[in-house]
């Protein structure tokens, strides 16, 4: 695709959204049998699945911490998740994404409850459409709760950016490719920022505006995350009635 003439016209974006609108989100909790906790998260064209194993024994042993759990996060893209087939296995990008995503979640996990153990978080991107890391963090945070891991709170993530000199929430692929800035953040419900990245060009004022927009996006996502967890419980109850 070549750059569209306009990414936003009369306050409406190419996919019909307003500047402060999120893409549609679909969440399902507890989708995997083998994992201790899991979550499927659809965020616009992104489809990701997160699994949590642990706390469990640490292998190799030298990675153990004597006073807390180690948190490990593996972000991985399926080779068919992108237009041009991606070679399987980690690359520099996925290693960086894994690191910052882990750091986005670590502050809320009560790691000190589980010395010498590991909490493993695996995020698989099945379909990518700009915003996979935020989708991954949202999914992982739910999967952690589903696994019964003690946490201070959930973490919610989304991006804001700039297209055609307009600050907008939650960029899609085309907006990301042809826009001017992208800034993913992650946030706890009380407003602590646990991830902040940005690339592109924003003035000081635009940054302020984008930051507020992204925080509002996180708040909206938090409500959906909470509802998804509650729903798992509701469907459990339903299942029992049917039985």
């Amino acid at each position: 695709m070549t750059k569209p003439e306009k990414l936003i016209e009369n306050g409406i974006r190419l996919d019909g959204r307003k500047p402060d609108e999120l893409r549609p989100i679909k969440i399902k909790v507890g989708v995997l049998n083998r994992a201790d906790g899991s979550c499927y998260f659809e965020f616009g064209g992104n489809k990701v699945i997160a699994a949590v194993y642990g706390p469990r024994e640490v292998h190799p042993r030298h990675m153990q911490k004597s006073t807390s759990a180690v948190v490990r996060y593996r972000y991985n893209m399926a080779s068919f998740s992108v237009e041009e087939r991606k070679r399987p296995g980690p690359d520099r990008r996925s290693i960086e994404v894994s690191k910052v995503s882990r750091e986005a979640l670590e502050p809320v996990i009560f790691q000190e409850y589980f010395p010498r153990s590991a909490i493993d978080i695996f995020v698989e991107v099945l379909q990518a459409d700009a915003g996979t890391r935020t989708a991954g963090i949202n999914a992982a945070s739910i999967a952690l709760a589903d696994a019964g891991i003690p946490m201070k709170s959930l973490v919610s993530a989304c991006a804001a950016g700039k297209i055609d000199d307009t600050v907008v929430l939650d960029l899609n692929k085309d907006e990301d490719n042809y826009g001017q800035a992208d800034m993913p953040i992650a946030m706890t419900p009380e407003g602590n920022i646990t991830l902040l990245q940005m690339d592109g060009h924003l003035t000081r004022d635009e940054f302020g505006e984008a930051f507020e927009l992204a925080k509002n996006g996180c708040k909206a996502i938090y409500e959906l995350q909470r509802a998804a967890l509650m729903e798992k419980y509701a469907s459990q109850m339903e299942g029992d009635v049917i039985e």
Partner: peptide, 14 residues
């Protein structure tokens, strides 16, 4: 190509 990614089982390793 097939990979037994660690998401799928406690015994699969990266």
């Amino acid at each position: 190509n097939l990979e037994l990614i660690p998401l799928a089982s406690p015994v699969f390793e990266a």
